[in-house]
Design a protein around this nucleic acid. Sequence first.
DNA 1: CGCATCCTTGAGGGCCATCAAAATGCGTGG
DNA 2: CCACGCATTTTGATGGCCCTCAAGGATGCG
Lengths: 263, 263
Amino acid sequence: MCFKTRMARGTDIQIAQSFDITGDFLAGRIRHELSPDDLSHLESSIADERRLKDREKLVTRGETLSRSAILVSGFMFRTLERGGQRYIVGIHLPGDFVDLHGLALGRLDHDVVAAGPAKVGFIEHEALDLAMAERPGIARALWFATLLDAAIHRRWIQMLEQLDAPRRIAHIFCEVQTRLGMVGKTNARAARTPFTQTDLADMCGVSAVHANRAVSRLREMELAEIRRGTLYTKDWEALREYASFEPSYLYANNAKTRSPVEA
Amino acid sequence: MCFKTRMARGTDIQIAQSFDITGDFLAGRIRHELSPDDLSHLESSIADERRLKDREKLVTRGETLSRSAILVSGFMFRTLERGGQRYIVGIHLPGDFVDLHGLALGRLDHDVVAAGPAKVGFIEHEALDLAMAERPGIARALWFATLLDAAIHRRWIQMLEQLDAPRRIAHIFCEVQTRLGMVGKTNARAARTPFTQTDLADMCGVSAVHANRAVSRLREMELAEIRRGTLYTKDWEALREYASFEPSYLYANNAKTRSPVEA
DNA sequence: CGCATCCTTGAGGGCCATCAAAATGCGTGG
DNA sequence: CCACGCATTTTGATGGCCCTCAAGGATGCG
Protein backbone atom coordinates (compact mmCIF):
# COMPACT_ATOMS: atom_id res chain seq x y z
CA MET A 1 0.00 0.00 0.00
CA CYS A 2 3.02 2.20 -0.24
CA PHE A 3 2.90 4.15 -3.46
CA LYS A 4 6.06 5.31 -5.09
CA THR A 5 6.34 7.45 -8.16
CA ARG A 6 9.11 7.11 -10.68
CA MET A 7 9.92 7.98 -14.22
CA ALA A 8 9.02 5.34 -16.72
CA ARG A 9 11.67 4.28 -19.18
CA GLY A 10 11.23 4.71 -22.88
CA THR A 11 10.13 7.37 -25.26
CA ASP A 12 6.95 8.25 -23.44
CA ILE A 13 7.89 10.17 -20.36
CA GLN A 14 5.17 9.69 -17.83
CA ILE A 15 4.55 9.24 -14.16
CA ALA A 16 4.03 5.63 -13.26
CA GLN A 17 2.89 4.26 -9.96
CA SER A 18 4.52 1.29 -8.38
CA PHE A 19 2.02 -1.28 -7.20
CA ASP A 20 3.77 -3.33 -4.57
CA ILE A 21 1.06 -5.94 -4.25
CA THR A 22 -1.00 -5.97 -7.42
CA GLY A 23 1.70 -4.80 -9.82
CA ASP A 24 1.93 -8.16 -11.59
CA PHE A 25 -1.81 -8.69 -11.98
CA LEU A 26 -2.42 -9.64 -15.62
CA ALA A 27 0.93 -8.14 -16.58
CA GLY A 28 1.78 -9.19 -20.11
CA ARG A 29 -1.86 -10.00 -20.76
CA ILE A 30 -4.56 -7.33 -20.58
CA ARG A 31 -3.16 -5.25 -17.74
CA HIS A 32 -2.61 -2.36 -20.16
CA GLU A 33 -6.35 -2.25 -20.83
CA LEU A 34 -7.06 -1.31 -17.23
CA SER A 35 -7.16 2.40 -16.48
CA PRO A 36 -4.61 3.85 -14.05
CA ASP A 37 -7.56 4.58 -11.85
CA ASP A 38 -8.67 0.95 -11.85
CA LEU A 39 -5.14 -0.18 -11.09
CA SER A 40 -4.85 2.20 -8.16
CA HIS A 41 -8.24 1.13 -6.93
CA LEU A 42 -7.19 -2.51 -6.93
CA GLU A 43 -3.94 -1.81 -5.15
CA SER A 44 -5.66 0.25 -2.49
CA SER A 45 -8.22 -2.50 -1.96
CA ILE A 46 -5.57 -4.70 -0.41
CA ALA A 47 -6.68 -5.21 3.17
CA ASP A 48 -3.94 -7.42 4.47
CA GLU A 49 -0.84 -9.39 3.62
CA ARG A 50 0.53 -12.72 4.73
CA ARG A 51 3.69 -14.72 4.38
CA LEU A 52 3.41 -18.45 3.84
CA LYS A 53 5.97 -21.11 4.60
CA ASP A 54 6.82 -23.93 2.22
CA ARG A 55 3.82 -26.26 1.84
CA GLU A 56 1.60 -24.11 4.00
CA LYS A 57 -2.06 -24.41 2.98
CA LEU A 58 -3.84 -21.14 2.26
CA VAL A 59 -7.25 -22.49 1.27
CA THR A 60 -8.89 -25.83 1.92
CA ARG A 61 -11.51 -27.00 -0.51
CA GLY A 62 -15.07 -26.49 0.59
CA GLU A 63 -14.43 -23.73 3.08
CA THR A 64 -16.42 -20.53 2.79
CA LEU A 65 -14.28 -17.65 1.63
CA SER A 66 -14.76 -13.99 2.47
CA ARG A 67 -11.70 -12.68 0.71
CA SER A 68 -9.39 -13.54 -2.15
CA ALA A 69 -5.62 -13.66 -2.24
CA ILE A 70 -3.25 -12.41 -4.90
CA LEU A 71 0.19 -13.97 -5.03
CA VAL A 72 2.89 -11.34 -4.61
CA SER A 73 5.98 -13.49 -4.59
CA GLY A 74 6.78 -17.17 -4.73
CA PHE A 75 4.83 -20.08 -6.14
CA MET A 76 1.65 -21.90 -5.17
CA PHE A 77 -0.18 -25.03 -6.31
CA ARG A 78 -3.79 -25.95 -6.82
CA THR A 79 -4.02 -29.45 -5.40
CA LEU A 80 -6.62 -32.19 -5.09
CA GLU A 81 -6.20 -34.85 -2.42
CA ARG A 82 -7.49 -38.32 -3.09
CA GLY A 83 -6.86 -41.44 -1.07
CA GLY A 84 -3.77 -39.99 0.54
CA GLN A 85 -2.32 -39.02 -2.81
CA ARG A 86 -1.84 -35.42 -3.88
CA TYR A 87 -2.60 -34.30 -7.42
CA ILE A 88 -1.40 -30.93 -8.64
CA VAL A 89 -3.84 -29.41 -11.13
CA GLY A 90 -2.32 -25.97 -11.55
CA ILE A 91 0.54 -23.65 -10.76
CA HIS A 92 0.28 -20.10 -9.52
CA LEU A 93 2.98 -17.49 -9.84
CA PRO A 94 3.21 -13.81 -8.93
CA GLY A 95 0.29 -11.72 -10.11
CA ASP A 96 -2.20 -14.60 -9.96
CA PHE A 97 -5.35 -14.40 -7.88
CA VAL A 98 -4.96 -17.80 -6.32
CA ASP A 99 -8.51 -18.40 -5.10
CA LEU A 100 -10.59 -16.07 -7.21
CA HIS A 101 -12.74 -18.95 -8.47
CA GLY A 102 -14.09 -19.12 -4.95
CA LEU A 103 -15.67 -15.70 -5.35
CA ALA A 104 -18.01 -16.73 -8.15
CA LEU A 105 -18.40 -20.37 -7.13
CA GLY A 106 -18.95 -19.75 -3.43
CA ARG A 107 -16.42 -22.34 -2.42
CA LEU A 108 -13.35 -23.88 -3.98
CA ASP A 109 -13.21 -27.44 -5.25
CA HIS A 110 -9.49 -27.72 -4.53
CA ASP A 111 -6.80 -26.67 -2.08
CA VAL A 112 -4.30 -23.89 -2.58
CA VAL A 113 -0.88 -24.47 -1.02
CA ALA A 114 2.45 -22.68 -1.07
CA ALA A 115 5.31 -24.17 -3.06
CA GLY A 116 8.28 -22.72 -1.27
CA PRO A 117 8.01 -19.52 0.75
CA ALA A 118 5.38 -17.18 -0.63
CA LYS A 119 3.66 -13.90 0.06
CA VAL A 120 0.05 -13.00 -0.68
CA GLY A 121 -2.15 -9.93 -0.40
CA PHE A 122 -5.84 -10.12 0.47
CA ILE A 123 -8.84 -8.28 -0.92
CA GLU A 124 -12.21 -8.70 0.79
CA HIS A 125 -14.94 -10.16 -1.40
CA GLU A 126 -17.09 -7.22 -0.40
CA ALA A 127 -14.52 -4.84 -1.83
CA LEU A 128 -14.25 -6.91 -5.00
CA ASP A 129 -18.01 -7.00 -5.43
CA LEU A 130 -18.15 -3.25 -5.05
CA ALA A 131 -15.26 -2.69 -7.42
CA MET A 132 -16.87 -4.92 -10.04
CA ALA A 133 -20.21 -3.15 -9.72
CA GLU A 134 -18.68 0.28 -10.13
CA ARG A 135 -15.83 -0.49 -12.50
CA PRO A 136 -16.62 -2.62 -15.52
CA GLY A 137 -12.95 -2.78 -16.40
CA ILE A 138 -12.14 -4.50 -13.13
CA ALA A 139 -15.06 -6.89 -13.52
CA ARG A 140 -13.87 -7.82 -16.95
CA ALA A 141 -10.28 -8.23 -15.79
CA LEU A 142 -11.23 -10.54 -12.96
CA TRP A 143 -13.34 -12.65 -15.26
CA PHE A 144 -10.52 -12.74 -17.76
CA ALA A 145 -8.07 -13.83 -15.09
CA THR A 146 -10.20 -16.81 -14.12
CA LEU A 147 -10.74 -17.84 -17.72
CA LEU A 148 -7.02 -17.71 -18.27
CA ASP A 149 -6.82 -20.37 -15.57
CA ALA A 150 -9.41 -22.38 -17.48
CA ALA A 151 -7.43 -22.10 -20.71
CA ILE A 152 -4.35 -23.35 -18.89
CA HIS A 153 -6.37 -26.21 -17.45
CA ARG A 154 -7.40 -27.20 -20.95
CA ARG A 155 -3.83 -27.29 -22.15
CA TRP A 156 -2.89 -29.43 -19.18
CA ILE A 157 -5.63 -31.88 -20.10
CA GLN A 158 -4.30 -32.03 -23.62
CA MET A 159 -0.73 -32.32 -22.36
CA LEU A 160 -1.69 -35.29 -20.18
CA GLU A 161 -3.54 -36.89 -23.07
CA GLN A 162 -0.71 -36.41 -25.55
CA LEU A 163 2.73 -36.33 -23.96
CA ASP A 164 4.95 -38.80 -22.17
CA ALA A 165 6.61 -37.92 -18.88
CA PRO A 166 9.76 -36.14 -20.10
CA ARG A 167 7.71 -34.04 -22.49
CA ARG A 168 5.22 -33.17 -19.77
CA ILE A 169 8.01 -31.91 -17.56
CA ALA A 170 9.48 -29.92 -20.43
CA HIS A 171 6.08 -28.45 -21.20
CA ILE A 172 5.52 -27.40 -17.61
CA PHE A 173 8.84 -25.58 -17.47
CA CYS A 174 8.17 -23.91 -20.82
CA GLU A 175 4.87 -22.66 -19.45
CA VAL A 176 6.42 -21.43 -16.22
CA GLN A 177 9.22 -19.68 -18.08
CA THR A 178 6.77 -17.96 -20.39
CA ARG A 179 4.47 -16.91 -17.57
CA LEU A 180 7.40 -15.64 -15.53
CA GLY A 181 8.43 -13.59 -18.53
CA MET A 182 5.04 -11.90 -18.58
CA VAL A 183 5.56 -10.58 -15.08
CA GLY A 184 9.18 -9.68 -15.74
CA LYS A 185 10.69 -12.33 -13.49
CA THR A 186 12.44 -14.34 -16.12
CA ASN A 187 16.04 -15.36 -16.47
CA ALA A 188 17.41 -16.01 -19.92
CA ARG A 189 19.16 -19.30 -19.25
CA ALA A 190 17.25 -20.80 -16.37
CA ALA A 191 13.72 -21.24 -15.09
CA ARG A 192 13.93 -21.08 -11.32
CA THR A 193 11.23 -22.80 -9.30
CA PRO A 194 11.03 -24.46 -5.89
CA PHE A 195 9.56 -27.65 -7.42
CA THR A 196 10.89 -30.96 -6.20
CA GLN A 197 10.83 -34.02 -8.43
CA THR A 198 7.92 -35.25 -6.33
CA ASP A 199 6.08 -32.05 -7.20
CA LEU A 200 6.79 -32.64 -10.88
CA ALA A 201 5.53 -36.21 -10.52
CA ASP A 202 2.29 -34.98 -8.96
CA MET A 203 1.76 -32.54 -11.83
CA CYS A 204 2.51 -35.14 -14.49
CA GLY A 205 0.54 -38.00 -13.03
CA VAL A 206 3.57 -40.27 -12.79
CA SER A 207 5.47 -41.74 -9.86
CA ALA A 208 8.34 -39.85 -8.27
CA VAL A 209 10.72 -42.55 -9.46
CA HIS A 210 9.58 -42.15 -13.02
CA ALA A 211 9.73 -38.36 -12.78
CA ASN A 212 13.35 -38.80 -11.85
CA ARG A 213 13.99 -40.95 -14.89
CA ALA A 214 12.20 -38.40 -17.06
CA VAL A 215 14.45 -35.66 -15.72
CA SER A 216 17.47 -37.87 -16.43
CA ARG A 217 16.17 -38.39 -19.94
CA LEU A 218 16.05 -34.64 -20.59
CA ARG A 219 19.61 -34.44 -19.36
CA GLU A 220 20.78 -37.32 -21.55
CA MET A 221 19.19 -35.72 -24.56
CA GLU A 222 20.98 -32.51 -23.62
CA LEU A 223 17.72 -30.62 -23.81
CA ALA A 224 17.69 -29.47 -20.21
CA GLU A 225 19.34 -29.94 -16.88
CA ILE A 226 17.04 -29.79 -13.87
CA ARG A 227 18.65 -29.35 -10.49
CA ARG A 228 16.66 -28.63 -7.38
CA GLY A 229 13.75 -27.05 -9.18
CA THR A 230 15.77 -24.98 -11.60
CA LEU A 231 15.82 -25.89 -15.26
CA TYR A 232 18.90 -24.87 -17.21
CA THR A 233 18.95 -25.02 -20.96
CA LYS A 234 21.02 -23.55 -23.75
CA ASP A 235 18.27 -24.00 -26.29
CA TRP A 236 14.78 -23.02 -25.22
CA GLU A 237 13.57 -23.38 -28.77
CA ALA A 238 14.59 -27.03 -28.92
CA LEU A 239 12.91 -27.66 -25.59
CA ARG A 240 9.70 -25.99 -26.73
CA GLU A 241 9.64 -28.04 -29.88
CA TYR A 242 10.30 -31.25 -27.96
CA ALA A 243 7.36 -30.50 -25.66
CA SER A 244 5.08 -29.24 -28.47
CA PHE A 245 4.83 -26.04 -26.43
CA GLU A 246 2.88 -23.36 -28.23
CA PRO A 247 2.12 -20.39 -25.97
CA SER A 248 -1.00 -18.91 -27.57
CA TYR A 249 -3.15 -20.46 -24.83
CA LEU A 250 -1.55 -18.07 -22.36
CA TYR A 251 -3.15 -15.09 -24.12
CA ALA A 252 -0.08 -12.87 -24.00
CA ASN A 253 -0.62 -9.40 -25.41
CA ASN A 254 2.30 -9.39 -27.81
CA ALA A 255 1.82 -10.09 -31.48
CA LYS A 256 3.78 -13.33 -31.48
CA THR A 257 1.80 -15.28 -28.95
CA ARG A 258 -1.42 -13.65 -30.02
CA SER A 259 -1.34 -15.20 -33.44
CA PRO A 260 -4.67 -16.99 -33.56
CA VAL A 261 -3.79 -20.26 -35.24
CA GLU A 262 -0.34 -21.72 -34.95
CA ALA A 263 0.85 -25.24 -35.49
CA MET B 1 -38.84 -17.78 -28.42
CA CYS B 2 -42.29 -19.11 -28.01
CA PHE B 3 -43.45 -18.73 -24.43
CA LYS B 4 -45.86 -21.16 -22.92
CA THR B 5 -47.40 -20.96 -19.51
CA ARG B 6 -48.26 -23.95 -17.43
CA MET B 7 -48.95 -24.92 -13.85
CA ALA B 8 -45.95 -26.01 -11.88
CA ARG B 9 -46.16 -29.24 -9.96
CA GLY B 10 -45.84 -29.34 -6.21
CA THR B 11 -47.25 -27.53 -3.25
CA ASP B 12 -46.50 -24.07 -4.52
CA ILE B 13 -48.99 -23.31 -7.21
CA GLN B 14 -47.45 -20.75 -9.49
CA ILE B 15 -47.17 -19.70 -13.07
CA ALA B 16 -43.99 -20.94 -14.65
CA GLN B 17 -42.65 -19.97 -18.01
CA SER B 18 -41.21 -22.45 -20.39
CA PHE B 19 -37.91 -21.39 -21.82
CA ASP B 20 -37.43 -23.31 -25.00
CA ILE B 21 -33.84 -22.31 -25.57
CA THR B 22 -32.31 -21.27 -22.26
CA GLY B 23 -34.45 -23.45 -19.99
CA ASP B 24 -31.56 -25.71 -19.03
CA PHE B 25 -29.06 -22.93 -18.34
CA LEU B 26 -27.52 -23.67 -14.93
CA ALA B 27 -30.45 -25.93 -14.08
CA GLY B 28 -29.62 -27.91 -10.98
CA ARG B 29 -26.90 -25.42 -10.10
CA ILE B 30 -27.72 -21.79 -9.40
CA ARG B 31 -30.55 -21.30 -11.86
CA HIS B 32 -32.95 -20.81 -8.96
CA GLU B 33 -30.95 -17.78 -7.84
CA LEU B 34 -31.79 -15.94 -11.04
CA SER B 35 -34.94 -13.82 -10.95
CA PRO B 36 -37.80 -14.72 -13.30
CA ASP B 37 -37.09 -11.40 -14.92
CA ASP B 38 -33.46 -12.30 -15.56
CA LEU B 39 -34.51 -15.67 -16.95
CA SER B 40 -36.99 -14.09 -19.33
CA HIS B 41 -34.44 -11.52 -20.36
CA LEU B 42 -31.96 -14.24 -21.27
CA GLU B 43 -34.50 -16.23 -23.24
CA SER B 44 -35.61 -13.18 -25.16
CA SER B 45 -31.99 -12.31 -25.97
CA ILE B 46 -31.75 -15.30 -28.24
CA ALA B 47 -31.16 -13.87 -31.68
CA ASP B 48 -30.95 -17.00 -33.75
CA GLU B 49 -30.87 -20.76 -33.72
CA ARG B 50 -28.96 -23.35 -35.66
CA ARG B 51 -28.92 -27.08 -36.14
CA LEU B 52 -25.60 -28.85 -36.38
CA LYS B 53 -24.82 -32.16 -37.99
CA ASP B 54 -22.65 -34.80 -36.39
CA ARG B 55 -19.04 -33.54 -36.17
CA GLU B 56 -19.93 -30.14 -37.53
CA LYS B 57 -17.59 -27.47 -36.19
CA LEU B 58 -19.27 -24.48 -34.59
CA VAL B 59 -16.20 -22.53 -33.50
CA THR B 60 -12.61 -22.71 -34.65
CA ARG B 61 -9.94 -21.62 -32.24
CA GLY B 62 -8.58 -18.17 -32.77
CA GLU B 63 -11.53 -16.76 -34.66
CA THR B 64 -13.11 -13.55 -33.47
CA LEU B 65 -16.51 -14.12 -31.97
CA SER B 66 -19.41 -11.69 -31.95
CA ARG B 67 -21.94 -13.98 -30.32
CA SER B 68 -22.12 -16.95 -28.01
CA ALA B 69 -24.02 -20.17 -28.38
CA ILE B 70 -26.03 -22.10 -25.84
CA LEU B 71 -26.55 -25.79 -26.45
CA VAL B 72 -30.24 -26.63 -26.61
CA SER B 73 -30.12 -30.31 -27.45
CA GLY B 74 -27.45 -32.86 -28.19
CA PHE B 75 -23.80 -32.99 -27.23
CA MET B 76 -20.70 -31.05 -28.20
CA PHE B 77 -16.97 -31.34 -27.54
CA ARG B 78 -14.22 -28.91 -26.82
CA THR B 79 -11.33 -30.18 -28.91
CA LEU B 80 -7.70 -29.32 -29.49
CA GLU B 81 -6.01 -30.44 -32.69
CA ARG B 82 -2.35 -31.27 -32.65
CA GLY B 83 -0.31 -32.94 -35.32
CA GLY B 84 -3.36 -34.44 -36.95
CA GLN B 85 -4.54 -35.89 -33.67
CA ARG B 86 -7.70 -34.70 -31.93
CA TYR B 87 -7.80 -34.25 -28.15
CA ILE B 88 -11.12 -33.80 -26.41
CA VAL B 89 -10.78 -31.53 -23.37
CA GLY B 90 -14.41 -31.14 -22.39
CA ILE B 91 -17.99 -32.20 -23.02
CA HIS B 92 -20.97 -29.91 -23.42
CA LEU B 93 -24.54 -30.93 -22.88
CA PRO B 94 -27.84 -29.06 -23.00
CA GLY B 95 -27.87 -25.82 -21.04
CA ASP B 96 -24.16 -25.16 -21.52
CA PHE B 97 -22.90 -21.98 -23.12
CA VAL B 98 -20.44 -23.69 -25.40
CA ASP B 99 -18.18 -20.78 -26.30
CA LEU B 100 -18.75 -18.31 -23.51
CA HIS B 101 -15.06 -18.23 -22.64
CA GLY B 102 -14.60 -16.43 -25.93
CA LEU B 103 -16.57 -13.46 -24.62
CA ALA B 104 -14.13 -12.63 -21.85
CA LEU B 105 -11.00 -13.92 -23.57
CA GLY B 106 -11.66 -12.37 -26.96
CA ARG B 107 -10.96 -15.58 -28.80
CA LEU B 108 -11.14 -19.26 -27.99
CA ASP B 109 -8.08 -21.44 -27.54
CA HIS B 110 -9.94 -24.54 -28.73
CA ASP B 111 -12.55 -25.73 -31.20
CA VAL B 112 -16.17 -26.53 -30.42
CA VAL B 113 -17.70 -29.35 -32.46
CA ALA B 114 -20.96 -31.23 -32.42
CA ALA B 115 -21.04 -34.81 -31.17
CA GLY B 116 -24.04 -36.18 -32.92
CA PRO B 117 -26.80 -33.89 -34.16
CA ALA B 118 -27.18 -30.80 -32.00
CA LYS B 119 -29.08 -27.56 -31.77
CA VAL B 120 -27.80 -24.25 -30.43
CA GLY B 121 -29.21 -20.80 -29.80
CA PHE B 122 -27.19 -17.62 -30.23
CA ILE B 123 -26.94 -14.49 -28.15
CA GLU B 124 -25.00 -11.52 -29.50
CA HIS B 125 -22.07 -10.45 -27.36
CA GLU B 126 -23.49 -6.95 -27.44
CA ALA B 127 -26.68 -8.20 -25.85
CA LEU B 128 -24.73 -10.15 -23.25
CA ASP B 129 -22.57 -7.14 -22.40
CA LEU B 130 -25.66 -5.04 -21.95
CA ALA B 131 -27.42 -7.69 -19.86
CA MET B 132 -24.39 -8.03 -17.60
CA ALA B 133 -24.11 -4.28 -17.15
CA GLU B 134 -27.75 -3.91 -16.19
CA ARG B 135 -28.35 -7.19 -14.41
CA PRO B 136 -25.77 -8.24 -11.83
CA GLY B 137 -27.51 -11.59 -11.47
CA ILE B 138 -26.90 -12.43 -15.09
CA ALA B 139 -23.30 -11.27 -14.89
CA ARG B 140 -22.75 -13.49 -11.92
CA ALA B 141 -24.47 -16.44 -13.54
CA LEU B 142 -22.37 -16.20 -16.68
CA TRP B 143 -19.19 -16.00 -14.64
CA PHE B 144 -20.34 -18.94 -12.56
CA ALA B 145 -21.05 -20.97 -15.69
CA THR B 146 -17.55 -20.47 -17.02
CA LEU B 147 -15.97 -21.32 -13.68
CA LEU B 148 -18.00 -24.48 -13.55
CA ASP B 149 -16.23 -25.41 -16.77
CA ALA B 150 -12.93 -24.68 -15.05
CA ALA B 151 -13.84 -26.89 -12.09
CA ILE B 152 -14.67 -29.71 -14.48
CA HIS B 153 -11.37 -29.15 -16.27
CA ARG B 154 -9.57 -29.54 -12.94
CA ARG B 155 -11.25 -32.84 -12.24
CA TRP B 156 -10.34 -34.05 -15.68
CA ILE B 157 -6.72 -33.19 -15.00
CA GLN B 158 -6.86 -35.14 -11.77
CA MET B 159 -8.70 -38.00 -13.47
CA LEU B 160 -5.98 -38.24 -16.12
CA GLU B 161 -3.29 -38.12 -13.45
CA GLN B 162 -4.92 -40.76 -11.27
CA LEU B 163 -7.01 -43.26 -13.21
CA ASP B 164 -6.35 -45.99 -15.74
CA ALA B 165 -8.38 -46.22 -18.94
CA PRO B 166 -11.41 -48.22 -17.73
CA ARG B 167 -11.76 -45.95 -14.72
CA ARG B 168 -11.49 -42.85 -16.88
CA ILE B 169 -14.31 -44.08 -19.08
CA ALA B 170 -16.40 -44.91 -16.04
CA HIS B 171 -15.71 -41.47 -14.58
CA ILE B 172 -16.72 -39.73 -17.78
CA PHE B 173 -20.03 -41.55 -17.90
CA CYS B 174 -20.67 -40.85 -14.22
CA GLU B 175 -20.11 -37.18 -14.88
CA VAL B 176 -22.35 -37.15 -17.94
CA GLN B 177 -25.08 -39.01 -16.10
CA THR B 178 -24.94 -36.57 -13.18
CA ARG B 179 -24.92 -33.53 -15.43
CA LEU B 180 -27.79 -34.92 -17.49
CA GLY B 181 -29.68 -35.36 -14.24
CA MET B 182 -29.28 -31.69 -13.43
CA VAL B 183 -31.06 -30.71 -16.61
CA GLY B 184 -33.66 -33.42 -16.21
CA LYS B 185 -32.54 -35.54 -19.12
CA THR B 186 -31.49 -38.59 -17.21
CA ASN B 187 -32.54 -42.19 -17.51
CA ALA B 188 -32.32 -44.40 -14.45
CA ARG B 189 -30.57 -47.38 -16.01
CA ALA B 190 -28.66 -45.92 -18.90
CA ALA B 191 -26.57 -42.94 -19.86
CA ARG B 192 -27.24 -42.21 -23.50
CA THR B 193 -24.61 -40.40 -25.50
CA PRO B 194 -23.54 -40.34 -29.14
CA PHE B 195 -19.90 -41.05 -28.18
CA THR B 196 -17.99 -43.57 -30.25
CA GLN B 197 -15.14 -45.53 -28.74
CA THR B 198 -12.80 -43.28 -30.67
CA ASP B 199 -14.38 -40.31 -28.91
CA LEU B 200 -13.83 -42.00 -25.56
CA ALA B 201 -10.22 -42.67 -26.53
CA ASP B 202 -9.68 -39.01 -27.40
CA MET B 203 -11.10 -37.96 -24.02
CA CYS B 204 -9.01 -40.45 -22.10
CA GLY B 205 -5.73 -39.94 -23.90
CA VAL B 206 -5.50 -43.57 -24.98
CA SER B 207 -5.65 -45.28 -28.36
CA ALA B 208 -8.95 -46.39 -29.83
CA VAL B 209 -7.84 -49.99 -29.54
CA HIS B 210 -7.15 -49.60 -25.87
CA ALA B 211 -10.42 -47.74 -25.31
CA ASN B 212 -12.11 -50.81 -26.74
CA ARG B 213 -10.30 -53.08 -24.31
CA ALA B 214 -11.20 -50.76 -21.46
CA VAL B 215 -14.85 -50.97 -22.43
CA SER B 216 -14.53 -54.75 -22.58
CA ARG B 217 -12.98 -54.68 -19.13
CA LEU B 218 -15.97 -52.82 -17.67
CA ARG B 219 -18.21 -55.44 -19.25
CA GLU B 220 -16.15 -58.34 -17.87
CA MET B 221 -16.28 -56.84 -14.41
CA GLU B 222 -20.02 -56.51 -14.85
CA LEU B 223 -19.83 -52.87 -13.88
CA ALA B 224 -21.21 -51.50 -17.11
CA GLU B 225 -22.10 -52.39 -20.63
CA ILE B 226 -21.35 -49.76 -23.25
CA ARG B 227 -23.01 -50.16 -26.61
CA ARG B 228 -22.93 -47.47 -29.25
CA GLY B 229 -22.44 -44.64 -26.82
CA THR B 230 -24.96 -45.79 -24.28
CA LEU B 231 -23.78 -47.07 -20.93
CA TYR B 232 -26.05 -49.53 -19.18
CA THR B 233 -25.50 -50.46 -15.57
CA LYS B 234 -27.49 -52.04 -12.80
CA ASP B 235 -25.34 -50.51 -10.11
CA TRP B 236 -24.42 -46.87 -10.52
CA GLU B 237 -23.04 -46.78 -7.00
CA ALA B 238 -20.53 -49.53 -7.78
CA LEU B 239 -19.51 -47.74 -10.95
CA ARG B 240 -19.05 -44.45 -9.11
CA GLU B 241 -16.91 -46.11 -6.49
CA TYR B 242 -14.84 -47.87 -9.12
CA ALA B 243 -14.16 -44.54 -10.84
CA SER B 244 -13.66 -42.60 -7.59
CA PHE B 245 -16.42 -40.35 -8.83
CA GLU B 246 -17.41 -37.74 -6.29
CA PRO B 247 -19.76 -35.12 -7.74
CA SER B 248 -19.12 -32.10 -5.52
CA TYR B 249 -17.00 -30.51 -8.24
CA LEU B 250 -20.15 -30.11 -10.31
CA TYR B 251 -21.57 -27.64 -7.79
CA ALA B 252 -25.08 -29.07 -7.77
CA ASN B 253 -27.52 -27.18 -5.62
CA ASN B 254 -28.77 -30.11 -3.61
CA ALA B 255 -27.47 -30.77 -0.13
CA LYS B 256 -25.84 -34.06 -1.00
CA THR B 257 -23.48 -32.89 -3.66
CA ARG B 258 -23.00 -29.59 -1.97
CA SER B 259 -21.36 -31.14 1.05
CA PRO B 260 -18.12 -29.21 1.26
CA VAL B 261 -15.60 -31.89 2.09
CA GLU B 262 -16.15 -35.46 1.11
CA ALA B 263 -13.71 -38.31 0.80
C1' DC C 1 -26.61 -55.68 -51.04
C1' DG C 2 -22.55 -52.95 -51.04
C1' DC C 3 -20.01 -49.63 -48.62
C1' DA C 4 -18.35 -46.99 -44.75
C1' DT C 5 -17.85 -46.72 -40.09
C1' DC C 6 -17.30 -48.78 -35.93
C1' DC C 7 -15.98 -52.45 -33.03
C1' DT C 8 -13.08 -56.50 -31.83
C1' DT C 9 -9.06 -59.45 -31.34
C1' DG C 10 -4.01 -60.98 -31.54
C1' DA C 11 1.07 -60.20 -31.19
C1' DG C 12 5.22 -57.81 -29.90
C1' DG C 13 7.28 -53.88 -27.66
C1' DG C 14 7.74 -49.41 -24.87
C1' DC C 15 6.37 -46.50 -21.01
C1' DC C 16 5.54 -46.47 -16.40
C1' DA C 17 4.35 -48.66 -11.55
C1' DT C 18 6.02 -50.64 -7.45
C1' DC C 19 9.34 -52.38 -4.23
C1' DA C 20 13.72 -51.91 -2.42
C1' DA C 21 17.90 -49.77 -1.35
C1' DA C 22 21.68 -46.60 -1.78
C1' DA C 23 23.67 -42.01 -2.57
C1' DT C 24 23.45 -37.15 -2.39
C1' DG C 25 22.61 -32.68 -0.55
C1' DC C 26 21.39 -29.57 3.13
C1' DG C 27 20.35 -27.61 7.68
C1' DT C 28 21.25 -28.12 12.45
C1' DG C 29 23.72 -28.67 16.48
C1' DG C 30 27.79 -30.30 18.79
C1' DC D 1 34.68 -28.27 11.31
C1' DC D 2 32.36 -32.37 11.75
C1' DA D 3 28.45 -35.42 12.87
C1' DC D 4 23.98 -36.26 12.32
C1' DG D 5 19.18 -36.44 10.61
C1' DC D 6 16.18 -35.73 7.06
C1' DA D 7 14.37 -34.90 2.58
C1' DT D 8 15.49 -35.54 -2.02
C1' DT D 9 17.51 -37.80 -5.77
C1' DT D 10 19.27 -41.92 -8.00
C1' DT D 11 19.51 -46.75 -9.46
C1' DG D 12 18.04 -51.72 -10.27
C1' DA D 13 14.57 -55.41 -11.02
C1' DT D 14 10.08 -57.17 -12.11
C1' DG D 15 5.54 -56.70 -13.85
C1' DG D 16 1.35 -54.24 -15.71
C1' DC D 17 -0.79 -50.81 -18.68
C1' DC D 18 -0.90 -49.18 -23.02
C1' DC D 19 1.26 -48.58 -27.66
C1' DT D 20 1.35 -49.78 -32.78
C1' DC D 21 0.54 -52.76 -36.58
C1' DA D 22 -2.53 -55.80 -38.63
C1' DA D 23 -6.64 -58.11 -39.85
C1' DG D 24 -11.22 -59.64 -39.27
C1' DG D 25 -16.19 -59.02 -37.82
C1' DA D 26 -20.31 -56.33 -36.88
C1' DT D 27 -23.47 -52.63 -37.75
C1' DG D 28 -26.07 -49.22 -40.16
C1' DC D 29 -27.35 -46.77 -44.27
C1' DG D 30 -28.50 -45.92 -49.10
